[in-house]
């Protein structure tokens, strides 16, 4: 074997073979990593019918949700599109199976009364379900709007590409 060939083989082993072994190690180590629960997609929403809309702010909450909620997910960071009478998009955060978002002040509520969303996901349910409520901060007389949402079956979009 010539010196050039020997040098090529050594360089190949060091620069290609060793990194590939490293890749094997990384793939093995990565199997133990846990990523946040997948909640992206469209959710069918059911709100509690007996929501009291005594305060003007209650009406603002009631108009937030209609029949669906769309979640766009990037890890723990979420973007929720609330398909109410006016389409509202808010940023939310996922902490384990708890979802939190501040919808901000709504018409009818004062600036000190931001609407908050708190919900928890049942990761074992199939399809996944979400139970939570919209509530108004700093408003003792406002009643929260409770809801339950079920994730719609995700369509694998690879085929449409």
């Amino acid at each position: 074997m010539s010196t050039t060939n020997r040098r090529f083989i050594i360089a190949y082993i060091l620069l290609v073979g060793v990194p590939l072994l490293g890749l094997g190690g990384v793939l093995k180590a990565g199997r133990h990593l846990r990523a946040p629960i997948s909640i992206d997609g469209t959710w069918k929403v059911e709100t509690r019918a007996n929501h009291a809309a005594a305060q003007p702010c209650d009406q603002a909450i009631a108009s937030l949700l209609n029949s669906s909620l769309v979640v766009s997910q990037s890890g723990k960071a979420l973007e929720l599109t609330l398909n109410g009478t006016s389409k509202t998009t808010v940023a939310a955060e996922l902490d384990g199976s708890e979802l939190r978002a501040s919808v901000g002040a709504r018409a009818g509520c004062s600036a000190e009364q931001p609407v908050m969303l708190m919900a928890s996901i049942d990761p074992k349910a199939e399809p996944k379900s979400l139970t939570g409520s919209f509530s108004v901060a700093n408003c003792a007389s406002c009643s929260p709007l409770e809801f339950r949402a079920v994730r719609q079956v995700k369509v694998q979009s690879g085929g449409e590409h």
Partner: peptide
Amino acid sequence: TAPFVLAAFLSLYLYPRLSDD
């Protein structure tokens, strides 16, 4: 191989932060 392996290492960091289960 170089960018591939480095990307796999980076994935160890990014997967729990930008992906889901």
